[in-house]
Design a protein around this nucleic acid. Sequence first.
DNA 1: TCTGTAGTTGAGACTGAGTCTCAATAAGGA
DNA 2: TCCTTATTGAGACTCAGTCTCAACTACAGA
Lengths: 166, 166
Amino acid sequence: MTRGIGRQMDSFKRALGDLGLEATPQRLAIGEAAFTVRPHFTVEELFQRVRKREPRIGRVTVYRTLKVMMQARLVEERPFRKGGMLYEPMAGHRHHDHMLCLRCGKIIEFENERIEQEQARAAARHRFQILTHSHTLFGYCRNCRKSCCSTRGAGPGECGRNGRER
Amino acid sequence: MTRGIGRQMDSFKRALGDLGLEATPQRLAIGEAAFTVRPHFTVEELFQRVRKREPRIGRVTVYRTLKVMMQARLVEERPFRKGGMLYEPMAGHRHHDHMLCLRCGKIIEFENERIEQEQARAAARHRFQILTHSHTLFGYCRNCRKSCCSTRGAGPGECGRNGRER
DNA sequence: TCTGTAGTTGAGACTGAGTCTCAATAAGGA
DNA sequence: TCCTTATTGAGACTCAGTCTCAACTACAGA
Ligand SMILES: [Mn+2]
Ligand SMILES: [Mn+2]
Ligand SMILES: [Zn+2]
Ligand SMILES: [Zn+2]
């Protein structure tokens, strides 16, 4: 899955041009980092990653560049948790929604064409113009549901998946 | 719509009992306020409202009590915006999802049984146990979509609806 | 009534995400 | 080279939410 970064960077550079912004080393470094961290990342994770290449970069620039990538629809914002968004690169990816395990943090992606259709119809009925949407299920993944949680017999950290993989 | 507060307060008191918590004046005041502010409120709005009756109450207690009401499923949390949740009393209300106008802040509620069904099926397919879900459409309401936004000819504040009614 | 205990409360300190400000720097054109 | 504009990053700031802890309450038992 490390393939496609070239293409993603091309889209990013084009987007910068379209918006009348320069392709500075900082912006390019942030782009490359965003397209190679794990698929749902925090700003802090991105920042740390960029710093390895460009130690002099500032947090503000990361926020700013992320905003540009959002405008260009190269990344999307995921309001999964209370303190702070997660971000996900979308270039190449098809649209999808998420299930989020409240115990082990696992993120499951799903697509459902019927839901998208019904959603469009509901919006049309209200003459509402959809720009984006967010559809997230919160609960327990297959590993965490019974064996761990119902029986109340385990602390966090087991359940097949070991630990954070949000 | 001011009817039903009695019933809601009864549920709340019962919930407190079930959780082994006392029905203190503070908690009751917060409950009453939560069931009478506007249907989607911020913590700060709730806090201000409670203060009118109980000026000595602290913000922490509001947060704490809100958490209790969440556990009892008397209110639900809405991750609509970046800085801070909105809350919505659910006692009596049927489940519904939301469309959110990015320009005037209007909140439209909708229900769609087919979406709920498909969502359940998608979860089942992944052996995922849903506890809650959040499904929100972001875009422009019927008043804001063309006349105001596409033509780029208006600042915020008009569009039929006058101002905030998030 | 007095006393001990557990539950509850609220002021204020603290954390962490995100924004704002502004001076320094880099780039590009005349 | 000189001038103008875009970009950057340190640090101050805002705001939501949490944590800590001492004070306060209700009440059960002596
Ligand atoms: Mn995803
Ligand atoms: Mn609602
Ligand atoms: Zn899990
Ligand atoms: Zn609107």
